[in-house]
Simulated assay, not measured.
Amino acid sequence: MPDITWEAPFCQDGSNCFRLGTDPEGNAYIALNGREDEYLTDTREALRTLITDIKAGKADHLL
């Protein structure tokens, strides 16, 4: 498992919590809170775009 530094969980209305993380090589990670061993990884820019779109309401059905 890579050396991932996880941020505090982000929760929508007390449920659907997820966490974002990064590693020293510049990769970004996203996982469900409590299940950080099962994560998706991509570049920081790709995950930043995903989260920005979710927060803008473009993909609220994902939460």
Results as ranks from 00 to 15, higher is better:
Pro2Tyr: 05
Asp3Ile: 04
Ile4His: 03
Ile4Gln: 02
Thr5Ser: 14
Thr5Leu: 10
Thr5Gln: 15
Thr5Phe: 10
Trp6Cys: 06
Glu7Thr: 10
Ala8Pro: 04
Ala8Asn: 09
Ala8Trp: 01
Pro9Leu: 04
Pro9Trp: 04
Phe10Cys: 09
Phe10Met: 12
Phe10Ser: 09
Phe10Trp: 06
Cys11Gly: 04
Cys11Gln: 05
Gln12Pro: 10
Asp13Pro: 05
Asp13Lys: 15
Asp13Val: 09
Asp13Leu: 13
Gly14Thr: 06
Ser15Pro: 05
Ser15Met: 11
Asn16Val: 06
Asn16Leu: 10
Cys17Trp: 04
Cys17Ala: 07
Cys17Phe: 02
Cys17Pro: 07
Gly21Leu: 01
Thr22His: 12
Thr22Leu: 07
Asp23Gln: 08
Asp23Cys: 04
Glu25Asp: 15
Glu25Gln: 14
Glu25Met: 13
Gly26His: 07
Gly26Trp: 08
Asn27Val: 05
Asn27Ser: 11
Asn27Ala: 10
Ala28Cys: 06
Ala28Val: 01
Ala28Lys: 03
Tyr29Arg: 01
Tyr29Met: 01
Tyr29Gly: 00
Tyr29Phe: 06
Ile30Asn: 01
Ala31Trp: 00
Ala31Gly: 01
Ala31Thr: 04
Gly34Thr: 03
Arg35Val: 10
Asp37Gly: 11
Glu38Gln: 12
Glu38Ser: 09
Thr41Asp: 07
Thr43Phe: 07
Thr43Cys: 07
Thr43Asp: 12
Thr43Asn: 12
Arg44Ser: 10
Arg44Phe: 09
Glu45Gly: 08
Ala46Glu: 08
Ala46Leu: 08
Leu47Asp: 03
Arg48Tyr: 14
Arg48Phe: 14
Thr49Leu: 14
Thr49Glu: 15
Thr49Cys: 09
Thr49Lys: 13
Leu50Cys: 13
Leu50Asp: 06
Leu50Ile: 13
Ile51His: 01
Ile51Asp: 00
Ile51Gln: 02
Ile51Asn: 04
Asp53Tyr: 05
Asp53Gln: 12
Ile54Lys: 00
Lys55Pro: 00
Ala56Leu: 05
Ala56Phe: 02
Gly57Arg: 00
Gly57Tyr: 03
Lys58Ile: 04
Lys58Thr: 04
Ala59Arg: 12
Ala59Lys: 14
Asp60Cys: 12
His61Leu: 13
His61Phe: 12
His61Val: 12
Leu62Asn: 01
